[in-house]
């Protein structure tokens, strides 16, 4: 389970001054559910997820992830979380097996358990063919499978996905979506950030719309539709974030 309470993150930048990337965000994700964090680029999705994964420390507020407080026991949180993002790449000079062994050892798995986990994941994700090849020779799909196996090697209770389909082709993206669903079906707590409306519609049990660092609205797809009198999620999203900026005039006014 994830329970965020008033999470805030302020970045201080010499050039841009103070930037409130996440502003008093609170939400709850139950086990066996997928929470979709929907927002435009720069809305605060990545920062929120990095706070939950304890890669960043919150300026204010806290969150409980898999029973651990992100401020009090960050290492305990990381031990129970699988984090997959476009920015979490693989070591090109290691094979897929070595990658899994490395992260398994860092998670404190014993050699026997680790071997069994790698066998299981390689079977489930159909990785046997390329398990002993170096990652720098992989196709995008193979890389994605290896990354997924890496997030699962320690069998975490909570899965955090930060735009995992960004830059993937249709087939690879579908495989990721299938895998996210499988995580939910196994009772894991899943949080998923994206700006792709169709993914949210297909996957998420609860949707949180984030804009300017603040959670603007939250609910199931049905709730949101009913509340805004709209069926199209994109229209709902635009309405929640306060409308779209006026387009520039095509022709100069006479």
């Amino acid at each position: 389970m994830i329970a965020a309470h008033g999470l805030s993150k302020v970045f201080r930048d010499r050039r841009r001054g103070e930037l409130r990337a996440v502003d008093n965000v609170s939400f709850t994700v139950e086990p066996g559910r997928i929470y979709g964090l929907l927002g435009a680029n720069g809305a605060g999705k990545t920062t929120t997820l990095r706070l939950l994964a304890t890669l960043l420390r919150p300026t204010a507020g806290t969150a409980e992830v898999a029973g651990r407080d992100i401020n009090l026991d960050p290492a305990g949180v990381r031990a129970r979380v699988g984090f997959l993002a476009t920015s979490t790449a693989l070591y090109g000079r290691l094979t897929a097996r070595e990658t899994l062994e490395y992260f398994g050892r860092l998670h404190g798995l014993t050699p026997d358990i680790l071997r069994a986990r790698i066998d299981l994941l390689a079977g489930e994700l159909e990785m046997h063919e390329f398990l002993d090849r170096r990652c720098d020779s992989f196709s995008t799909g193979m890389k994605q499978k290896t990354s997924i196996a890496r997030t699962l090697v320690h069998d975490p209770a909570v899965m955090i996905f930060d735009e995992p389909t960004l830059g993937l082709d249709v087939m690879a993206a579908r495989a990721v979506v299938r895998f996210v669903r499988a995580c939910r079906d196994r009772g894991k707590t899943v949080i998923y950030s994206t700006h792709v409306m169709s993914e949210v519609e297909k996957l998420c049990d609860v949707i949180g719309i984030i804009h300017g660092g603040r959670l603007r609205d939250e609910g199931s797809l049905a709730d949101l539709r009913a509340r805004h009198g709209e069926t199209d999620l994109e229209e709902i999203f635009v309405r929640v974030v306060g409308g779209e900026p006026a387009p520039p005039p095509l022709l100069p006014p006479r």
């Binding site: 890669l55 290492a75 990381r78 031990a79 476009t86 790449a89 070591y91 860092l106 404190g108 890496r150």
Partner: peptide
């Protein structure tokens, strides 16, 4: 640059 630093930071290692 290669994006593996964040992967490593996700592990429960201090």
């Amino acid at each position: 640059e290669r994006g593996t630093m964040e992967t490593l930071l996700c592990s429960p290692v201090a």
